[in-house]
């Protein structure tokens, strides 16, 4: 069971998730402190570790639009949030898969802060309202990256396989 801790609207850009002025900060150990930096209240809660890992950040449509900055993913991954959104922008979705941030596309989701969600392979159930919403599963090829533990181990494996065949 995962609790919805925060809810945002449509078209939340990576500038909102991770403001451009912090782009010189790149380390995954530092970016989580700057998640939603301009949203003082939420940022403070995150920084104070008041939000338990595995909590849900509920997004609307086109979550993560705009800049390709990967800090927008690593800053959320650092808090082990699960992002449930009606839809994701392409680069954000791919970055999330590459870094192992859990993202769930659930086009009709209805939930509020405080609701408890149960996420299965095919649906999200809002235990608080009793309603169930189908989710869009990821294409198989992306699952392969997730199964490998992210794009870095996936690429490492491919490199080693390649190194072997040319030997």
């Amino acid at each position: 069971m995962a609790t919805v801790v925060y809810k945002v609207g449509n078209d939340i850009s990576t500038d909102v998730i991770y403001p451009g002025r912090f782009m010189a900060t790149v380390l995954p150990s530092e970016t989580p402190l700057l998640a939603f930096a301009d949203d003082a209240a939420f940022n403070a809660k995150l920084k104070a570790k008041q939000i338990p890992p595995g909590s849900v950040l509920l997004g609307g449509q086109n979550f993560g639009c705009g800049s390709s900055r990967e800090q927008a993913v690593s800053c959320l991954k650092g808090h082990e949030l699960i992002i449930v959104a009606k839809s994701f922008a392409r680069i954000f979705l791919q970055n999330a898969i590459n870094l192992g941030l859990r993202v769930v596309t659930c086009p009709n989701i209805e939930a509020n802060v405080g609701d408890e969600l149960e996420i299965s392979a095919t649906a999200v159930t809002n235990k608080s309202s009793g309603k169930e919403f189908f989710l869009v599963s990821l294409p198989k090829s992306r699952q392969a990256i997730i199964d490998a533990g992210g794009l870095i181990p996936f690429t490492r494996k491919r490199l080693l396989e390649g190194a072997q065949t040319t030997r």
Binding site: S68, Q94, N95, L99, R158
Partner: peptide, 19 residues
């Protein structure tokens, strides 16, 4: 098209976009 930094690292290593 735009990609993230980790995906670019993968491109630098492999020369292909894997996904």
């Amino acid at each position: 098209f735009g990609i993230g930094a980790t995906e670019m690292a993968s491109v630098w290593a492999l020369g292909v976009a894997v996904n």
